[in-house]
Computed example of a mutant assay.
Amino acid sequence: MGLRDATADRERRDLVTRQVMDESRLIRFVAAPDGSVAPDLARKLPGRGMWVEATRDAVAHAASKNLFARAAKAPLKPSADLAETVETLLFRRCLDQLGLARREGVLISGFEKAAAAIRSGRAAWLVEAADGSADGRGKLLALARHQTPPPKVCGLFTADDLSLALGLENAIHAVLLEGGRADRWTTEVERLAGFRPLTPPSWRGDAAEDPDGFSDGRGFAP
């Protein structure tokens, strides 16, 4: 069972806004034995969960105001860089998921294979290296506009990040095919989107920012 499956139709209250939200939009924290606050991204650590919306501002606010101590009714001391810690952990989880997807045969890499996957209509995500060439990226983004619905787009990782995660040399273009793995990755990357944009600002003007509205700037097609 994946994270998305495990959190389906389950809601929790955000410590910051006090709003009830689906678990997929929240980060779970628990009190660590040393009195600090530990992120529990897999939602498996023992203890009473404390839930915060998966955004940098929300986690930073919860830490600075020490809303965790109030929720736990204990003298907890969250680290000042808790939001950065969560971002780093989410970043790594997303890369790990891509590595698993490749081993399972549901992640296609390379320009020609990525283009073929998009033409097949089975692409859930187009993952482009942030430092890849605009020419190749633009061609795949233009091609992706013709898939219905178009795949979502992620340009968060460098070629080095992707190469290491996928066990490849010079990984630039990849397509994550529709299915359970893509659903699980979507949950993770949508949480990461609350901490950093999924497409670099330098991509503005590419096909991803086409007037037709291919992408909303966070990597999500409308």
Rank of each mutant, 00 (worst) to 15 (best):
A58Y: 03
R13V: 15
A208S: 13
G180M: 12
A114G: 12
D5Q: 12
L176Y: 05
A63S: 14
R103S: 14
K65H: 15
L164K: 14
A62C: 06
T199P: 05
D57M: 08
R181Y: 02
D22I: 06
A83W: 00
G194Q: 04
S202G: 13
W203Q: 02
T158W: 05
T88E: 12
G138K: 05
R18S: 09
G155E: 14
A38E: 15
E87A: 03
I118E: 03
E84H: 09
G110T: 00
W51M: 08
R56C: 04
F220R: 15
E53T: 12
H146I: 09
D206S: 15
A71P: 04
A208N: 10
P151A: 10
E190G: 06
A129D: 02
W125R: 00
V153D: 03
A193W: 04
V106S: 13
R4N: 06
M50C: 06
H173R: 06
A142T: 14
S24D: 14
G179F: 07
R196G: 01
G219D: 02
R218P: 02
P151D: 07
P197R: 13
L177E: 15
D22H: 15
D5A: 14
R12L: 12
R93A: 12
E188F: 11
P149H: 04
E11P: 02
